[in-house]
Nucleic acid binder design. Structure first.
Length: 849
RNA sequence: GCCGGAGUGGCGAAAUUGGUAUACGCACCAGACUCAAAAUCUGGCGAGGUUCACUCCUCAUGUCGGUUCGAGUCCGACCUCCGGCACCA
């Protein structure tokens, strides 16, 4: 240990030692309890940004904490290295995407190492390497085998800027998740994964993780799956023998249905129209709606438009014929693509009915408290003129509904669906909003879809033993819609595995979210050539104990990985339903945008980025890490400030200087036990030490890292105030200082590991902090307990005085000393004491009148 | 529009879940050291009033009301900001 704190020297030294000794490498054959700490793996864009730094500092602090507590910690890292930016670089700068990616990985790995993150580098993986994506292909074939992967022509989301297909999750809100461009619709033949088969489980199993995941993420997942209970009801089309099936959640309103409305893409449209005079008009209308849909701006809702197609549908409950319309606000993708229109009780139907003068018939009356108590039903939806001015969408009491009149909505919804089922014109039903996951990408830089097309045999899966289907070294990167792979004859041309005749490979690659759906299982067994991972080994580590990442993946990666895990369970690879026990979504790191008052996520295009390497060079990795964790609670936005980081440097230097002052005395003098004659100051210091140990240990459970750092600072301040002189201090004082300094150094380690190792060494310990674990201190409640209590005395709820009492003081004693207090007596003089509230060991409140 | 979350000093933020509001840090101010500056160390720092001073008083956690001996915390209404979803029948 040197007298002065030079971060770059210390950090280099310990990074080297860690690498040489392999202390962060985890093995399964370790009897200690395991802990899997995981951070979302980065895309190798070339440069680490502060958001990464924050993410990894949180995870690293937790990994260190658990290690020091004696856990066998798995803390791996890898690269989500397939994807668009590499291909964009290839298109724009004519570089090879593989070279570009590998170079970026080298640079970013260096950055991570300069931060001193405690990863097990022996387990590093990269999605673009054949030994990894071989298993993406294997999983794809497994899904194909089980009918979970299928191909169909459909309208897909298309980002015109990146010229690529996007999944529904990636185009949420109608904009591209990566570049924010307005998404268009295109008809393409695409591979899909049947995530909808798991919709029910994706909602149901939320129960298993709700204790450990942020509520807002679970809510977004549950909204995204969009489970909706209702009923299917068949409306016969008059004079045709055909029927239209509608989905409704409000079967109780069916007597108010004044039309049936189908989507422009509804298949029955063509059938019904056979021979109809209206056919050209309707086809033109349907075409127009399709256009609207394709170019939707995503912002405002379209004006509702529709057309009466001249057919009548029979309401199976009332036997009433109602007109069939086609309209732009009915979506083919949801439910059955057809709805019953109940203007009186649905806002959209109301708006539509107003515009086209469809009848509006009230069939639900609000059920108020009064009404339930027997007051007459108030039909508030209509005014004196009988005109209905807005729809009433709440539950209530059925009116104008034949034999169902008088029932409450809740009851009618159940009974009417059962009735429909019993009479063969419908049934209770559950629908979901989630759609199947479109995974085809007409891109080069991804895992090729392992499928061959043979003129004789049709579509043939690549046999497992022929995996991986390896990407060619390069291709023509035009940036247009077709996959570059289609232009590589050596890749495309192959022979059929069945009949050996010439055949062609599928030229699509898979969505990169396939790679990230299972990568953390691969970390458990990263070099396995025979399987994606060995189940027994992986079972040792998984599920993940704590996952940390940004909440931008709340419905993309996190829903895919839950789906993937359930699939892996179904093919016997894992034996649990949910991959992640606890999830933390950390806040963004923002910086002021030059010349404005706006704080935005750091980015190259806004020019408000901060280079982690510059921070490390200027302040050291330890100070950078400490500041990032101290500046705000982990889930809050973190507004970057350079003055703040100087405070972190200052703190580290002060601690370092303190250890330097004491290190000789502490590493030489063997002071074995606490002498009985300890000074007040020494006892107070020990109390603070043990209080701080308790505080930080429990703060770590909730990842309240900012308050942990504050507690360390407080403890240091008290140590500083204690102000003992190493040359002359008594044995008992030295004992208290040693205890405090050692606890301080150990508890500082998760935040600033390099300087902590250096100071631990300076305090006379050899072999590093992980030489002997558990090392994390344990609080002694006896030592942490206060010797005397300062009890605030309130009069009428206002703080007026304080008294000193000992722990365990009785309520009565406290009451007496409060009433005996001089200031309190002055205040109660001449007034009546109504009562005295005593909170044991906390507070006294004297109520006077 | 619907669904979430949040409003506490000049700033980032604390507050053991109803019990001393503003811990810790940043910024700022003053003092020490220095020829000087930086660094470092020491002290101060919600607002207003009062006192030579020690002190004490009043107000203050977005606004208004309520519950309670006591409210940043619970309840009701509202305002503002941020995020998500957006014709999902």
């Amino acid at each position: 240990m040197d007298e002065k704190y030079f971060p770059e020297q210390i950090e280099k030294k310990w990074q080297q030692r860690w690498a040489e000794s392999g202390v962060f490498e985890a093995t399964e054959d370790d009897p200690r309890e395991k802990f899997y700490a995981l951070e979302m793996l980065p895309y190798p864009s070339g440069f680490l940004h502060m958001g990464h730094v924050r993410n990894y500092c949180i995870g690293d602090a937790l990994a260190w904490f658990k290690r020091l507590q004696g856990y066998n910690v798995l803390h791996p890292i890898g690269w989500d290295s397939f994807g668009q930016p590499a291909e964009q670089a290839a298109i724009k700068r004519r570089v090879n995407p593989r070279d570009w990616t590998e170079e970026n990985i080298v640079h970013m790995r260096g950055q991570l190492q300069r931060l001193g993150l405690s990863y097990d580098w022996s387990r590093e993986i990269a999605a673009h390497r054949p030994d990894y994506y071989k298993w993406d292909q294997w999983f794809f074939l497994k899904m194909l085998e089980r009918g979970l992967a299928y191909k169909k022509v459909s309208q897909v989301n298309w980002c015109p800027k990146e010229e690529t297909v996007l999944s529904n999750e990636q185009s949420s809100g109608g904009i591209c998740w990566r570049c924010g461009t307005q998404v268009e619709k295109r008809d393409l033949e695409q591979w899909f994964l049947r995530i909808t088969d798991y919709a029910e489980q994706l909602v149901r199993d939320i129960e298993q993780i709700e204790a450990g995941w942020p509520e807002k993420v679970l809510k977004r997942q549950s909204d995204w799956v969009g489970r909706s209970e209702g009923a299917f009801i068949d409306f016969q089309i008059k004079d045709t023998g055909k029927k239209i099936r509608v989905f409704t959640t409000r079967i109780d309103t069916i007597y108010g249905a004044t039309a049936v409305i189908v989507s422009a893409e509804h298949p029955l449209l063509d059938e019904i129209l056979e021979g109809s005079l209206l056919k050209p008009d309707i086809q033109a209308f349907a075409e127009k709606v399709k256009q609207q849909r394709a170019t939707r701006t995503g912002e405002a809702e379209e004006e509702k438009e529709g057309l009466n197609i001249g057919a009548l549908a029979i309401n199976p409950f009332s036997s009433e014929p109602v007109p069939v319309w086609v309209a732009n606000y009915v979506l083919m993708e949801y439910g059955t693509g057809a709805v019953m229109s109940v203007p009186a009780h649905d806002e959209r139907d109301f708006e539509f009915a107003q515009k086209y003068s469809l009848p509006i018939r009230q069939v639900i009356a609000p059920a108020t408290h009064d009404q339930i108590k027997g007051e007459p039903v108030q039909t508030t939806a209509g005014d004196a003129s009988g005109e209905i001015r807005q729809s009433f969408t709440g539950y209530g009491v059925l009116i104008n509904s034949g034999e169902w009149g008088g029932k409450l909505s809740e009851v009618a919804i159940k009974e009417m669906a059962e009735y429909a089922k019993a009479h063969g014109f419908g049934e209770p039903a559950v629908t979901y909003r989630i759609r199947d996951w479109g995974v085809s990408r007409q891109r080069f830089w991804g895992a090729p879809v392992p499928v061959i097309y043979c003129p004789n045999c049709g579509m043939v899966p690549v046999p497992y033993e022929q995996l991986p289907v390896v990407l060619p070294d390069t291709a023509e990167f035009t940036g247009t819609g077709e996959s570059p792979l289609a232009g590589v004859p050596e890749f495309v041309n192959t022979t059929c595995p069945n009949c050996d005749s010439p055949a062609r490979r599928d030229t699509d690659t898979m969505d990169t979210f396939v790679d990230s759906s299972w990568y953390f299982f691969r970390y458990c067994d990263p070099r396995n050539d025979n399987e994606a991972f060995n189940s027994v080994i992986t079972r040792h580590w998984t599920p993940v104990d704590q996952y940390i990442g940004g909440d931008s993946h709340a419905v993309m990666h996190l829903i895919y990985t839950r789906f993937w895990t359930k699939f892996m369970r179904d093919i016997g690879l894992v034996d649990f339903d949910e991959p992640v026990k606890r999830l933390l979504t950390q806040g963004m790191v923002t910086n002021r945008v030059e010349g404005t008052d706006e704080w935005k996520a750091m980015s190259k295009s806004l020019g408000n980025g901060v280079d982690p390497d510059e921070m490390i060079a200027a302040f050291g990795a330890d100070a950078t890490r400490l500041f990032v964790l101290f500046a705000a609670p982990v889930e809050n936005e973190l507004r970057w400030s350079e003055t703040g980081i100087e405070g972190a440097v200052r703190f580290l230097r002060r601690v370092y200087t303190m250890v330097w002052r004491w290190h000789e005395r502490l590493s030489n003098a063997a002071v074995e036990s606490d002498a009985l004659d300890s000074s007040d100051g020494a006892r107070a210091l020990r109390r603070k030490t043990h209080q701080t140990i308790a505080k930080i240990t429990s703060d770590f459970e909730g990842l309240h890292l900012n308050t942990s750092v504050a507690a360390l600072m407080e403890m240091f301040n008290q140590l500083n105030d204690f102000n003992a002189d190493p040359a002359t201090a008594s044995d008992s004082d030295v004992f208290a200082v040693r205890e405090a300094l050692e606890a301080l150094v150990i508890m500082l380690t998760p935040f600033a590991p390099h300087i902590s190792e250096e100071m631990w060494d300076g305090l006379g310990h050899e072999g590093g902090l992980l030489k002997q674990v558990p090392r994390w201190p344990v609080a002694d409640p006896g030592l942490a307990a206060r010797e005397e209590l300062e009890i605030p005395i309130q009069v009428n709820g206002k703080l007026r005085s304080r008294v000193i009492a000992s722990p365990g003081v009785s309520e009565d004693e406290l009451r007496q000393s409060a009433l005996a207090d001089e200031r309190v007596r002055a205040l109660i003089d001449g007034r009546e004491v109504v009562k005295v509230i005593v909170v044991p060991e906390r507070l006294v409140n004297v109520v006077i009148r």
